[in-house]
Every structure is written in C-alpha cells, then in structure tokens.
Amino acid sequence: MVKGLYTAYTGMINQQNRMDILTNNLANSATNGFKKEGSTSQSFDEQLAIKIKDTSAYGLPKGLGDVSLGVKIGECYTDYGQGSFRVTDNIYDMAIDGDGFFAISYTNKAGETSVKYTRDGAFTVNREGYLVTKDGDFVLNQAAAEAGNPGQAGYIQINPNLPLVVDEVGNYYQNDVLLGQVGVVDFADYNFLAKYGENMYELVEGGQVQPSNAQVSQGTLEMSNVNVVSEMVEMINITRAYESNQKIIQTIDDTLEKAVNSIGKA
C-alpha cells in the first residue's frame, strides 16, 4: 500500500534483533571467556523507482531515482578483544593472554565427536585424571589441537594427586617433569568461527588452524569482555530507534486514515 509502512516495519524488526543480541551480551556479562557480539545494519538493495503514466510527461514512464525500502542485519560480528583476568588460584584454571583458543574434544548427544574451541579455561580433572571442561569434555594437547583430531590420543592425562604446573607456552609439568603441552591454537581468519554455545566455537568449512603465540596463564580465568556502559548506551539507542520507527508507522497510519475517512466527505 504505502512503501514507508513496510520500511518502518523492517526497521522495528531490525531493532528487535539488535536487542536480542545485546541482551545475550548482558546475560553473559559474567560468563568466563565470553566475547561481546554485535550486529551491523544494512539497507536493502536500492531499487529504481519509476513513475508510470506520468501525464506531465506525455504519459511516458519517468525515473524518480533510487529508493531503499528497508533495513536488515548485515552481519553479526564478535569482538575478540581480551577480557579482564581474575585470579582464582585454582591450578586447573587457565586463561589465554593474546590470540588463541583452547581445543576441546566435544561429544554431542548424537555421539558425534568433534573439535570445538573455547576461551573459557575453567577446567577440572575427572577421576581418571583427564583434564576436562566443567561439562566433562576433554581438553586437547597441542599436537591434537593443531591437527584438529578429537581422538583419545590427544587427551591430557595427569596425576591428580600431584601439583600441576603450567608455564606460559602451555607446557605442563608434574614433579618438574615435562609431560606435554596444553593445546592453544589460533585461526587465520576469525570470520570462519561459528558460535556453538556452551562457550564454544566451531570452525566452519574453509577456516584454517594455525599455531598461536598467545601465553597461557595458570590460576586465572578470563572474564567476559562485555562493556556494560556501551551496552546500556546501545540499549537506549535501540529502544529509541524502535520508538521512532513505531512513530513513522503511526504517522503513515494517520495519513491513511485521512485518505480513507476524510477525503470525499461532504
């Protein structure tokens, strides 16, 4: 009917989606290793508007120029910036300082095992002495992490009754004996990282694993990098933008109401 009605409608939907993303940031403001997400808005493809049956131009179609008929999400991005560190003094807690991810052998409900990546280094040891996440998924060593192999050969097994020492490159020692290296890998392009949930990322087709030069810090956890001030400002921004789109719809509705009810009235 009226183009602007639908344009404003897409605006409201877009603000709602932005609100969803922002709320997820706020809900995860205390999640270990969480990385802030955001979205860009993009206008719909421009279309050439043509006025047809234009009597002022002898009934010939006349170009009016390009119009854009709304907005959509361009992309969702993740801010992989460093989160703050919190000292926990738990020897199984590890944080990554720099660009890198721990590699986890993750088994889903269907029994399929794959390698997932996480910045959440809140690990523990199970009764067999394997280093695992809080959900019991196995942490992989450097060789398995680089090869992307989720098999048992890559699990990290230690003696849980002895102190564990992890140095900056991720080498882990017990009784001053080097036992192996906790796997930390980086990616050539973070655009190929999809979010899985459970603090984990998965690498999609085309992504490349590369060695990381990040440092591992034992006894610390990386906090979420959500900046609550910017989220609150963003929230004001979103609600107001939503409101203005709503006003546009109301105004158009008013105009239509005039057209329907007032024109032609005696």
Binding site: D20, E37, Y196
Partner: peptide, 26 residues
C-alpha cells in the same frame, strides 16, 4: 556458560557486500 545459538539470518554480507562464511547468529 552461554546457551545455544540460533541463526537470525542465513546470508550475511560485509559492508563491501562480500558474502561472509557464517550466518548471523544470536
């Protein structure tokens, strides 16, 4: 821990209009 992610929009493009490998997730 974060909960699972949903796809908001399948096709995503950068500011330059290049297609991105992952969909918009929330």
């Amino acid at each position: 821990k974060s909960l699972l992610y949903q796809t908001l929009q399948t096709r995503t493009t950068t500011a330059n209009g290049e297609e991105k490998p992952i969909s918009a997730q929330v």
